[in-house]
Write a protein that binds this DNA or RNA. Sequence first.
DNA 1: AAGCTCTGGAACGGATCGTTCCGCTCTGCT
DNA 2: AGCAGAGCGGAACGATCCGTTCCAGAGCTT
Lengths: 214, 214
Amino acid sequence: MTTVPLSGRRAQAARNDEVILDAAREVFVADPAAPIAAVAHKAGVGISALYRRYPSKEELLAKLCLDGLLVYVGIAEEANAALDAGADPAETFATFMRRIVDADTHSLTQKLAGTFQPTEDHRLSAIRAGELNAHLVERLHEAKVVRPDLVVADLGQVFEMIAAVRFGDDERRGQLRHRYLDLLLAGLLLPGATALPGPPPYVGEFASRWDKAT
Amino acid sequence: MTTVPLSGRRAQAARNDEVILDAAREVFVADPAAPIAAVAHKAGVGISALYRRYPSKEELLAKLCLDGLLVYVGIAEEANAALDAGADPAETFATFMRRIVDADTHSLTQKLAGTFQPTEDHRLSAIRAGELNAHLVERLHEAKVVRPDLVVADLGQVFEMIAAVRFGDDERRGQLRHRYLDLLLAGLLLPGATALPGPPPYVGEFASRWDKAT
DNA sequence: AAGCTCTGGAACGGATCGTTCCGCTCTGCT
DNA sequence: AGCAGAGCGGAACGATCCGTTCCAGAGCTT
């Protein structure tokens, strides 16, 4: 957010930094396998403008994914802080889920995973996110606002399921995602129905997601 | 299912018919964009064996998709028949959902849609499926076993969300899908929570799915 | 033994896409 | 005014991938 209006060429370049990242986020969220030319087109710039900033497609994807992880961590930290401050647990949880869904961080992290070689930063942020999730779920169990058989790994699956709702423009998609999030929350929050079948997912089942294909 | 053991070459050919279809289903369910060579490899045959039976990849996909639609229609018909016969509505609904999830027809219909030019058969089966869905939902509302704001198009979205659970081998994936199906059913069935937000999806929103890309 | 059906898999041609490169524009400085 | 160079657009390149064709051979059938 450069408030100082740099003149001419240099200002354009600074603006492009942001325009390109926004375009890349939008394009790759819509289609993680999209070509780089699509990003350039969406941003209204040439391909050179991209390669001037990122040495390869992989690094651009890595950057987007890391940004997504950081956003997730930020929202999760706020939720944990709210709980520590004595906020209503059920409502805090619902708000947390809605904020994550709105930020669509899942599309930037899980769906981009495997398209680039994760760095140490990714690993650390992912671990941090895991800790926050664990802490959050623990608090929710203590407060007895969620069904007892809810496990941490369920959170990721729920986000993944919600991300599978992909219709319409941004606004309509947001509406529908909130609809199905509420549906899932109705099943997640107490009073719950009968016990869920089968062994719950464990975190390790998600790990292979990060293996780079080639 | 040829029980008569044809001799030698011709038997092998007859067996290949089935082997190839099974392999194709498995491969394309796992990855709708998989190359045809992957199907041949999975089936343990050469590429010629495929092209002898289907003039193009598109026709193979069309066949798989139609099969999926017919399976869906069959299961939906049984559910409707059970309701007409006076079976317990909530349980019939749950069984219906579980059977569809197990058959994974969603992966064969929605996820393959757009990869081939739909035929009249596809259209008719899709319409039939829509009618059965409408009838089913109507009955459920009459019996007051589902939340009042449930609409027909929600069914498709729920299946789509469940299909987003893609971990592990067949068995593990099945377990997890049942877990999240139960979670969704807990939200779907009465006693429901508060009203769902935003306008519900309408059937037309799904139509573009069938447009062939090129 | 001839003729056919069916097969495996190499080869072809087209498409896609990441990356490089060249020539141009415009700016900031002298 | 003129120049050096940063920044840029987009064509061109090379690699890869994939659907489809084609051909040589293997084995039934008669």
